[in-house]
Amino acid sequence: MKNIQEIFSDLKEKFGDAVLELIASPPFESIITISPLQIADVCLFLRDNEELKFDSLVCLSGVDDANGKTIKNENGDSVIEGGTLSVYYHLESTGFRHKIILKVSAPREDPVVASVALIWRHADWHEREAYDLVGFKFLNHPDLRRILMPYDWEAGHPLRKDYKNPEFYMGMKVPY
């Protein structure tokens, strides 16, 4: 079993600049931030390394940080420009019983993140959900389609903070 500090220094030694920082916020678990295009390499290392063996991706979730500038567009709707969207990965090793949280932040205008769907197969649907609701583009994902919303949903990604629901969908009125 390794603590977060040891795991962080292992990663830092192996990947250098791709591993950004360790955010400690006791009593909650610490978070290691990774750069979005290297996350797949880091995860493959975390899964296969003999002393780490993170064999389980507990959860993968997309978050809208909403840390950009809020401006009004020509229709009078407030939209967010700039800032980041983040993906959190909760990992656990069922053998060693240690856990970590990884975080990647990608720019809101082009949120490209490397896919881990081929490292843990259940990340496939988690990443489709994050794509569907927040709008991440996962590189090398085998089947990046919407999973919850209808396939022909054109109004964007509902869990973004500046999302605006359409008036009609296929002739059905959407607002109350």
């Binding site: 919303m149 509902p158 629901n165 059905m172 009125k173 959407v174 109350y176």
Partner: peptide, 14 residues
């Protein structure tokens, strides 16, 4: 009824 972006607000609309 208010924040359900995915919910039809009454089956009698269909």
């Amino acid at each position: 009824w208010e924040h359900g972006y995915h919910v039809l607000k009454g089956i009698d609309r269909v």
